[in-house]
Simulated scan of single mutants.
Amino acid sequence: MVKTTNVHGGNVHKAIRLLHTSLDQILDFSANINLLGMSSKGLDAVKDALQDVIHYPDPDMTHLYSITSELWDMPKECIAFGNGAAELIYAICRLPNIEAVYVPAPGFSEYSHGAHSCGLPVIEYELYFDADTFNFSYPLEQMLHDLNKSQNYLVFIGNPNNPCGTLWKYESRELFEVCKKNGHYLVFDESFVDFLGDAYSMRNYVKEYDNVIVVHSLTKFYAVPGLRIGAMMANPMVINFIKSQIPSWTVNHLAQIYSEKALQDIDYIQETRAVLTEEKKWLYKELMLMDSLQCIEPSVNYMLCHLDEQYSLDDMIQKLYYQSILIRDCSHYTGLGLNWFRVAVKTKEQNQQLIHALRSYFRL
């Protein structure tokens, strides 16, 4: 048996070592990356810019700030970039006067890791699971209760939340007002919101509330986790503090060049959303036809599933692994437990390979 557990999905490099294979033979459903791959316009720009890596990157990121300010309708002084969303999350945890970090369970592990790196206590709030609808939702009343009784928390909300895909759907401003009154920072992690569109983002609240922060990954939708680039939006005082906490040249030249072009690649953006809409419906339907699985209907490009307890998730993961298919073990997330796993939504051909492998495992 090979040891496959990782803090995150996407460790294809470990897989090729253990399986003695090549990168192009790995079918990675453990990382939630755009099923179309990179933007062709962005990729062409990277190829043209390769010779420029003999120079330091532009520390001012002038073009990137101009483009994103217009696209996101956000003043430049309210935007910061980092080496992926994770670097920004860690920097946010260093904001002054924070007494604790309030995180969703299940939720992205880097919220807690960022807190621990600063010596801050972590308080988890468990999402509500409805067994009848087989879905998670945010426990707004519990959150309001906890946040009314505390001060100076860093409050993380995944929108959508990873790994369950739960969206923040509350239109009430009560949470915003409670956080403002009690000195809490309200951080929306929108690393996957581009798969849905601007209408789902909370970034307009940045202009109204000095304590609202939005984290925005560019590696998921634009398919460049290996280049590393993320953004955040907040009031200028928060932005200036964050910039003081991250190194110079934190975003490399190729990541800047790629992002400038990919963010403006309208055809790529529209095609991604159209293809994803069809593929996530198809994959959800096919998985739900298997009696041994229950799945949460996906909001974006990943799906949280539960394997019937007559089966061993470790065994299923191993069987798929030896077929060079990687899925994400979610059994260690608080609020989940045994036999929960996550799969990305990929192309039709790749999704069909996953379905075939699972049917073979269940002998359907």
Results as ranks from 00 to 15, higher is better:
M233N: 00
L227A: 10
K220F: 08
T250Q: 05
L175H: 11
E177C: 05
A231K: 02
Y200S: 08
P247G: 04
M233R: 03
R228N: 12
A262T: 04
F241T: 05
V193P: 05
I269Y: 02
N211Q: 10
Y258G: 07
K180I: 01
H253I: 12
L254N: 02
E190C: 11
F176T: 10
I213R: 00
V251E: 05
P247K: 06
D198L: 14
Y268S: 04
R173I: 04
P160Q: 11
Q245G: 00
Q264L: 13
E260F: 00
V238N: 08
Q256A: 06
Y170M: 08
V215L: 15
D198N: 13
S259H: 00
R273I: 06
Y205T: 08
K207V: 03
G197M: 09
R228T: 02
V275P: 01
L227M: 14
G226C: 01
K261A: 13
D265M: 09
H184R: 05
N204C: 01
Y170D: 12
K169Q: 15
A274G: 00
P163I: 14
A231G: 15
T166H: 06
P160F: 14
L227E: 01
S172T: 13
T272W: 07
G197K: 12
A262W: 10
H216Y: 15
S259T: 14
Y209V: 09
A223W: 07
M233S: 09
F221S: 07
F192M: 07
